[in-house]
Amino acid sequence: MRIVNISGFVISNTALIILCAGLGLPLSYAAEDVDSIMAKNYVVGKVAGSVSEADFRLISSNGQERVRKTTGKSKLKIGSEDKMSLVTFLSPADVKGTMTLTIENSSIGKDDDMWIYLPALKKVRRLVASNKKDSFVGTDFSYADVIGYKINEWKYTLLREENIEGSACFVVEAVPKSPSVQEDSGYSKRIMWIRRDAYVTVKGEGYDTGGELLKSFRFSSYKLVDSKNSKWVPMYLEAENLQTRHRTVIEMKKFEVNKDIPESIFSARSLQSES
């Protein structure tokens, strides 16, 4: 519990909140606008282009673990913060060469695009864009969890501040602005712990449409990958489905900023021809 000293009185922050609310006073740390926090949070991980290697560890409720090795490429669309990313599976052998392509479309009224390429079928399959709550290639992250949430579709509230592993964090609640956003994302509420200093998310919770806690997230081992633009990327990402107790850990083995990746590889046609 954080202790705040006001005028010689020592008051716990819960008491402080009650006190301020009672007096109609704004809380001092609410000085920073929540929308500004979220805007900074949205761009902090947006790297112009990257090449990466990651291990996806899928851990079942009884502790059985599977590892999928992947490589990834990403790029921001020119002139926007919309991210395009391509993930290729290296192992296990029977899914080697499988690729997924996700393209974010932040402009209003436009859905994100998702494709998967299956080498055994030599077929590219388009995934229905509204299914952003679906699993991202069999992990406990959904496509939306991976692509990111459109800021303008959610209503944010700053709940409080909390220390997470020694770092001061904003605790922000996000609720969908419309039923369709709730339906598409599968969340009736999200709570994020965002570090004050770097605006990166270190912890998250997602509540299902019935209001029950569905998933918890942890992001750590943040790496400053682009110091000029203050871009931070977590090297460790974890999602747990608290209802099925299934867990996914993504560990970045390599992450390099690379602005020179050709935009042309991020297309369905290019997926097909990669084979």
Partner: peptide, 11 residues
Amino acid sequence: LLLYSTSGEPG
């Protein structure tokens, strides 16, 4: 199965 898992859930 992988394709299924893109729409289904891991469990």
